[in-house]
Write a protein that binds this DNA or RNA. Sequence first.
DNA 1: ATTAATGCAAAATCTTTGCACTTTC
DNA 2: GAAAGTGCAAAGATTTTGCATTAAT
Lengths: 150, 150
Amino acid sequence: MTSPDSCAQLNKQTRQRLVAKLAAAGLRITAPRLHLAHLLFRHGNRHVTAEALRDEAQASGLKVSQATVYNTLNQFQAAGLLRQVQVDQARSYFDTNIDAHHHFYVEDEARLIDIAADAVDVARLPESPAGYDVDRVEVIIRLDKSEPSK
Amino acid sequence: MTSPDSCAQLNKQTRQRLVAKLAAAGLRITAPRLHLAHLLFRHGNRHVTAEALRDEAQASGLKVSQATVYNTLNQFQAAGLLRQVQVDQARSYFDTNIDAHHHFYVEDEARLIDIAADAVDVARLPESPAGYDVDRVEVIIRLDKSEPSK
DNA sequence: ATTAATGCAAAATCTTTGCACTTTC
DNA sequence: GAAAGTGCAAAGATTTTGCATTAAT
């Protein structure tokens, strides 16, 4: 019933990788951070909400408060380990993909899908207002379910 | 001290235009709606938050509750008179520009700036996942203050 | 030892809702 | 007069904060 790679079973090698990652980001090594980092980074790129991550953490046996989940997500983001994606007024998504890329967003399902940076060609951008520099360019393609009835 | 075009002073012609606009959108004509519509649409394109609009309404002499401001903004949006822009986790912006266009966002100042659709050239888009259609494409260019110290 | 992280509950937002009352059509 | 809109306060939801306790450097 217990997941083979849930947090309690973190093997030495995985743990080492995560410790290195947190240390490189200048973060102290704590049990909650290691556990959450493992959940976030073990399987490729993910988009999570704070609530979903807490549920997942608790399901995997980690007792962690929602406040700590928020703190951790915000710290990971400040450290450059995560990116926050703002597509829905109701909740924030945290994206483990920190490379330049874009998103599909299925509003009906509150679901984000990555788009590789090179799959979109933004050929021309307007000049930034004087005194400002481009931090980053986000392309969000909002999707609807197809209507075959039409 | 009273603004010459605040709501109480809505002249007949302006009022007629707003009545027509609301009617065309299928909305009943009520005093709060006319007043808010006037504030929203009198001077070209704007980006407002619900709170800012309520403050502005009250400053112009209209007694309106925050709930009604939210209701009205949501109804206007549902009717296609406004568009909601999601760039900040903390608050929603409502944009009176309903044509296709994009945005600069100055995070430090919580300020949105329109970009004409033809000022950005999105030359190539990825294919949508099967079963979904593109609703719209949003380009958000996040800006930072220039750092001349660098 | 110092400094930072955690948990808990409470607070702070922003936004929506329920309901009595009023207004529009 | 039926249906919809409004105001108020209360409820919801997400996120942050204060503070005592615990853990990391």
